[in-house]
Design a protein around this nucleic acid. Structure first.
Lengths: 128, 128
DNA sequence: ATATGTGCAAACTGTTTGCACACGA
DNA sequence: TCGTGTGCAAACAGTTTGCACATAT
């Protein structure tokens, strides 16, 4: 039952921390290879799952249906551009408001807010 | 390019409208069979996609990673119980508040709020 | 008549699992 | 040493696609 510290877990967590792209497992593997390491895909899956259940990272999915991972565990929303598919953090969402309004049928532990639309960059291109 | 009205599309939409369980494609197929119809799985996938792009139904995914479909297109959040996995509608979330607070980097077309936790029924069982 | 939709099976993609081996404590 | 972690390949689950046939307009 004891968690063990391995080179692989450390590499994966480090890459997640230094990334601000909310990578998928595939993107994580690419990044790992790019840095000259090699970690089996199954190991990446197993480690991100562990990190999620330890609460060290968060996972979320977008319209693409693939899981993305995020080492930023503070409350924030995600915006995904339907045009360039970039995912951005949105920090100025007031969660207290959201939860306060909800009726008392549930005991809520997690609130996730997903925004979709067009980012300003893509909007400029469309407008032309 | 012209949309055609088929028996299959109609059955699928009807079942979605009369359901309040936010079914997955598999659950839709089961329901279809249960009512004595037969529609190929691929057809169900193709039709729900069409209905989504026509804006007649909404799709969303939960922690289970599977897509759920919802004929209720009015703005509302979803709560999923981590214990019994039931999905409930939550109507009393004020979206205006959420959007108003967000900075102007994006042109937002969709806001989806996903809540997780324990429903009162499961909470009672846990408390015992 | 003809273009769009259907059903089936095969292909694809993301994720999980079984197993032998490696390695951290 | 011994139990947890790793790497590989195979298995799985959800979804998409190619193709011949069916059907709505």
């Amino acid at each position: 039952m004891k968690e063990r510290n391995t080179r692989q877990k450390e590499i994966i967590y480090d890459i997640l921390c230094s990334s601000n792209n909310h990578p998928t497992v595939k993107e994580l593997c690419d990044e790992i290879n790019m840095k000259g390491y090699h970690i089996g895909q199954a190991t990446v899956y197993r480690n991100v799952s562990k990190l999620v259940s330890l609460g060290k990272i968060k996972k979320f999915s977008t319209v693409d249906g693939v899981e993305h991972y995020d080492a930023n565990c503070t409350f924030h929303a995600h915006f995904v551009c339907n045009c360039c598919h970039k995912i951005c953090d949105v920090d100025d969402v007031c969660y207290d408001n959201i939860i306060a309004q909800i009726d008392k049928r549930f005991c809520i532990s997690t609130v996730s807010v997903m925004l979709e639309g067009t980012c300003n960059l893509c909007q400029e291109i469309i407008d032309k």
